[in-house]
Amino acid sequence: MLLAQISDLHIKRPGKLAYGRVDTAAYLSRCIEHLNALDPRPDAVLITGDLVDFGDTEEYAYLRTLLNPLAIPYYLCIGNHDGREALREVFGDHAYLRDQARFVQYEFELGGVRIVVADSQDPPHGGGRLCDERLDWIAETLARSAAQPTLLAMHHPPFDCGIEHMDEQKLDAADAAKLAAIVARHPQIERLLCGHVHRAIQMRFAGTIASVCPSTAHQVALDLRKRGPSRFVMEPPAFQLHRYVAGEGLVTHTAFIGDYGGAYPFYDENDALID
């Protein structure tokens, strides 16, 4: 099973730039070209939230046109910048978005692996919440197939990463503790997949690994100082590839989008190391 994860697209209305300088639509198009060219091609793409910037129907309509060239099935997860009803309206044929009335939560299977997608949005706040209704759904969903390898996904990470202004809007600490208690009961969870922080980050969490996927466009500045300012940098856009092999487990690669030269051989035609 090969799952591509992209995150934090922040698509705006046509012609608009994020923060006055980032052409997030152009960056997404480059990402899609990269994904389509992969060999082997991923079985699916999971987009872990902040699909658009202001959660309105015009942004989602533009996002849909940008995603049309993607030659891989894709699944949408909601983030703090998203709008549940506008998303459901524009992507009306994605029936899984309406599996629940109040929240955008669902599950699907891919190559023997179960992917459980939770809704951590808490409008109008930037931080995430998991109310009892959502936590109960996660617990019940995980319990139905306790022996099947599983990926749990949501937008907000349930841990501090050290970037203070992002930690102020992570998943609520009390909710994260309740989630940890659920996750600890389910060793079949190979990974907790998150977005939100626009960086590649990993941490042990409740007996598994919680990871954050970089953005397809701009990244949050890596500033671990106390009271570090809220800033972004134009480090290379990236995505993650999650490869699962039965009996071996899950391996994750962070892949940068763009042409950086190569691939160059280590050895010549006579199998001699090139000096």
Rank of each mutant, 00 (worst) to 15 (best):
L2R: 15
I6M: 07
S7L: 08
D8Y: 03
L9G: 00
H10T: 01
P14H: 10
A25M: 12
A26D: 13
Y27M: 11
Y27C: 15
L28N: 11
C31T: 12
H34I: 09
L35Q: 04
L35N: 04
V45E: 09
G55Q: 01
N68R: 15
I72N: 02
C77D: 10
H81P: 02
L87D: 01
L87M: 12
G92C: 06
H94S: 11
A101T: 14
F108R: 13
L110H: 01
R114Q: 15
D119L: 03
P124Q: 06
G127Q: 08
G127N: 12
G128P: 05
G128W: 11
R129S: 10
D136S: 07
I138R: 10
T141Y: 03
S145K: 12
A147P: 02
Q148E: 13
L152K: 09
A153R: 07
H155A: 03
P158L: 13
F159K: 05
D160I: 01
H165Y: 04
D167L: 02
Q169M: 14
D172A: 06
K178F: 00
I182P: 08
P187E: 04
P187K: 07
Q188D: 11
I189E: 11
I189P: 12
H198K: 02
A200V: 07
I201Y: 06
I201E: 01
I201K: 01
A206M: 13
I209C: 08
T216P: 05
H218K: 14
H218S: 13
A221F: 10
A221Q: 15
L222N: 11
L224V: 11
L224N: 05
K226T: 04
S230A: 15
E235H: 05
P237E: 11
Q240W: 00
L241F: 04
H242A: 12
H242F: 14
R243L: 04
V245P: 00
V251S: 07
G258D: 09
G261C: 07
G262R: 09
P265S: 03
D275S: 10
